[in-house]
Amino acid sequence: MLEQIATDIRNGLDGKNFDGSLKFDCGTDGVIILDNGSVTTREQPTDCTLRLSTENLKKLLRGQLNPMTAVMMGKIKISGDMGVAMKLGKLIG
C-alpha cells in the first residue's frame, strides 16, 4: 500500500537534499522512512515521527493539506525533533 507512495517520494526527492530522519507513521497501513535522502518502508528509529492517516499523507504530499493547519487540527501528530519536521515543510512546500 505505502510502497507506491514511497516510490513517489523517492522520485520527488531526486536531486533534493534531506538531512536527518523522518517517519510517516500511518498506523496499520505501515510506515515510510526518509533517512538522509533514502526512502524505505522498513521500520527503524528516526529523529522525528509524523503520525497521520494514509489519506492525509497523500493530501500532504500533493499539496492539498497545509502541514501547519493539519497539525493544529490534529490531523498530524509530531513527536521528536521539530527541526526535522520543518525541513520537510520546505521540501514539499
Rank of each mutant, 00 (worst) to 15 (best):
C48A: 07
D47F: 10
N17G: 04
L22H: 05
D25A: 04
K58T: 09
T7D: 13
K16G: 11
L2Y: 09
D47W: 11
D14K: 15
G15I: 09
P45Q: 07
M72H: 13
M1R: 12
E43L: 08
M68C: 00
T69S: 14
G83P: 11
M72A: 14
G93W: 08
M1A: 13
Q4W: 13
M1E: 09
D8V: 07
A6F: 06
L65C: 06
L2A: 01
G27H: 07
G12S: 14
F18K: 06
G20M: 06
S53P: 06
N56M: 09
M1D: 11
K75H: 12
D8G: 11
L65Y: 11
K23R: 15
N66L: 08
L2E: 05
G20A: 10
D8Y: 15
G12C: 08
M86V: 15
L88P: 00
N36W: 06
T28G: 09
T41F: 06
A6H: 04
G12I: 07
G74Q: 07
F24C: 05
S21C: 13
K23P: 00
M73W: 08
V71F: 15
P67M: 01
D14P: 07
T28V: 09
L65H: 08
K75T: 05
G20N: 02
D81C: 08
V71A: 10
T46W: 02
K58N: 06
F24S: 00
L88F: 09
E3W: 08
R51T: 04
D47A: 04
Q64S: 12
K16E: 03
I92W: 07
N17K: 13
R42D: 14
S21L: 04
G37L: 02
G30M: 09
I32E: 01
L52S: 01
N17F: 13
Q64N: 12
S79V: 13
S79H: 10
A85S: 07
Q44T: 11
Q44D: 04
I33V: 15
R62T: 12
D8Q: 14
L34P: 00
V31P: 10
Q44H: 06
N56W: 06
D8A: 12
M73V: 03
K75F: 06
L61C: 00
N66D: 15
L34D: 00
V31W: 03
K77E: 01
G93T: 11
L91C: 08
L34V: 00
C26I: 02
R62L: 11
V39L: 07
I92H: 10
I76E: 02
F24K: 04
P45C: 05
N56A: 05
K23N: 12
V71Y: 08
L88A: 08
V39Q: 05
F24H: 02
A70T: 04
G63W: 11
T46I: 03
F18N: 01
I5K: 04
R42N: 15
G30H: 04
T40K: 03
L88T: 03
S53G: 06
N56C: 02
I5S: 01
K23L: 06
T69I: 11
L22S: 03
D81V: 08
K77A: 15
L50W: 02
Q4E: 12
G93S: 11
F18S: 01
Q4G: 10
M73I: 03
F18C: 05
M68Q: 15
M82A: 14
G74E: 03
K16F: 10
G27N: 09
K75D: 00
L91V: 15
D14S: 14
P45V: 03
G30K: 03
T46E: 01
P67I: 00
K87F: 04
G63C: 14
K59H: 09
